[in-house]
Design a binder for these strands. Structure first.
Lengths: 185, 185
DNA sequence: CGATTTACTTACTACTAAGTGAGTCGCCGC
DNA sequence: GCGGCGACTCACTTAGTAGTAAGTAAATCG
């Protein structure tokens, strides 16, 4: 599928790092055929972000169905990032954020919205965890949520450039434990 | 100067986001003249990383000359990132890390080395601070150092995509306080 | 069955990228 | 005044980019 091939390239090489010809080549068709489905590359980019955000939010909803408490959910959240990096990819919106200034206007809003949705979800988990007395952290939940998203995105970026997807595991675990402590009741 | 113009573009748009013609245009010369100084774009890229790393390490050495203790040094470290973002830029090696898979081999090593040097410096400050009893943190200094670098790089990335350089200030301060606590003796 | 739609291909345009080689211009020591 | 040299420019090549226009085979619909 076009979106699958384009998504993998975008997560590895960035949006400006692949061409219609690349995607067409993998699928055994011509570049013009990709233009049939996505007239402009911007259309493809917007669709890519929409689908990625949709699936990401679905994964978060799935995590919420585990009744293992706020701490386990935060660990599961970090686990999503870990699996993406294990495939040699970055977070789509993370790599797009780096290319932000080169991207067409239509793609920018949805990228910010992705991070906003992440923070919203984390904020909810943190608030609930503190309320239930199973989590402790400093300041407002939203601040911790923003720091958590940032720490995971950054840890991915640096881990890839230093050759170790394993390094990410321990770094993300430390960042999570530091930003937010589990309490045993 | 060529390197100044190219560096600003690289920090805003990424290495693949600018061309010789862009840089030449700003300087009022032709692209061929840039090729005279940097035959291949890779040469320019390598030089850019070298100079950035050099200056970054010089700034770290400058911070060490403040005798205000480990905690103040860590805050100064975060302050470097803050000032870069305030100019509308990202960390050069942060944005290059996002483009990592598209970059020529010769540029990759130096990018990893930049992060290595950051971790080394932070590790030294953390060790010293713990030794002196003015800092408390969990686990090995190097782990905290890696988490700190990652958290700052990621916070920058996300802050820019969300329109707020101010958001970075509070996020980085929270990440710093969470990963490493100052002790009053 | 004929009309239309879907998913393409072929062949192309217009443009931009990096990179090259030959030639020019101004300055500096002699 | 003259040779040489560093710093360029001009004119170019090669290779790739997004995007378009026209045509086609096969499936779908009324």
């Amino acid at each position: 599928m076009i979106l699958d091939a384009a998504e993998r390239r975008a997560q590895v090489l960035g949006f400006n790092g692949f061409s219609y010809a690349d995607v067409a080549g993998e699928l055994g068709v011509t570049a013009a055929s990709i233009h049939y489905h996505f007239p402009a590359k911007t259309d493809l980019g917007v669709r890519l972000i929409e689908r990625y955000t949709q699936r990401f939010l679905a994964a978060l909803a799935q995590i919420e169905r585990h009744p293992d408490g706020a701490w386990a959910r935060l660990q599961d959240y970090a686990g999503i990032y870990e699996r993406v990096l294990a495939e040699g990819r970055l977070c789509l919106c993370g790599i797009l954020a780096a290319e932000y200034e080169t991207l067409p206007e239509r793609m920018r809003g949805p990228i910010g919205a992705f991070f906003g949705a992440n923070e919203d979800w984390l904020t909810a988990q943190l608030s609930e965890g503190r309320q239930a007395g199973v989590l402790a952290f400093e300041g407002e939940p939203r601040g911790v949520a923003a720091a958590l998203t940032g720490a995971l995105e950054g840890a991915m970026l640096v881990a890839r450039a230093r050759g170790g997807a394993e390094a990410f595991v321990s770094t993300s675990a430390l960042a999570l434990r530091s930003l937010c402590q589990p309490l045993s009741p």
